[in-house]
Design a protein around this nucleic acid. Structure first.
Lengths: 121, 121
DNA sequence: TTGAAATATTCCCATATGGGAATATACTTT
DNA sequence: AAAGTATATTCCCATATGGGAATATTTCAA
């Protein structure tokens, strides 16, 4: 079975770099018609529309028609689940002390064991 | 072209729910041999190994041999890029005030425009 | 050495992915 | 109505995905 569809899970939806770009752009510039995104992202229009469709399905964006164009708007609160999940791990890198500790432990481990060589690509 | 390989991007690696479970379990329980994960997650062993392999490639976990078992350990700091990215949007939902504002705007939009019906599934 | 335990790898498969190209749709202006 | 603008959708395709089953590998124990 392949991975759960991007259209059903926010984590999956933001796994695509271009979609993260779109999200970021909308966050910075506010709601925008598709054409603006096409121009800004330098991605072909159908690709943009497809990505927007994915984002819409997980409610990360919503659309409204305005004249002949469709204006997309970010719903940032839909990112909260991601934020909440990652936040659990924040403490591991947030303090200088823990960082040093982690560093030391890692070095110790590197001496004892052989890390399997990093696969190419 | 399909999505960038899970093995090259942390965002992609954590898009898989089971891998998030593994990450969470390792965070809570500390380093663990594969067998423990198999038992805890109730996933067949090959599946666990494959997920661990993905996580290892993006450095989210590292391995060390201990006797005949391999102990996997979380490298939580590798989640920092995700945290940093999502954190940019935190302000949108963090304050009550902004939440109210967003709500109001949304309602206003809903009256002006017709939201395309949410696809099934 | 032989066997068992622990884990990794390989092979096969149904399905999702995202891009490109072409086309359809919706709305506006003339 | 006709033409143009803006966007969505469809079709095709190469490739990645994750699961299942079987097998290989590594390591320890008798």
């Amino acid at each position: 079975m392949p991975r759960a569809a991007t259209t059903s899970d926010v984590f999956n939806a933001i796994a695509e770099p271009r979609r993260r770009e779109i999200i970021q752009f909308l966050a910075q510039s506010g709601e925008q018609p598709v054409g603006t995104l096409v121009h800004a992202m330098r991605i072909p229009q159908p690709a943009v529309s497809k990505h927007l469709n994915v984002l819409r399905r997980v409610r990360l964006v919503s659309v409204s028609r305005r004249g002949r164009s469709r204006v997309y708007r970010l719903n940032p609160q839909e990112l909260k689940p991601v934020h909440d999940w990652v936040k659990n791990f924040e403490r591991y890198w947030s303090t200088q002390l823990l960082r040093i500790k982690a560093r030391a432990e890692e070095k110790a481990r590197e001496q004892k064991t052989t890390q399997p060589p990093e696969e190419k690509q």
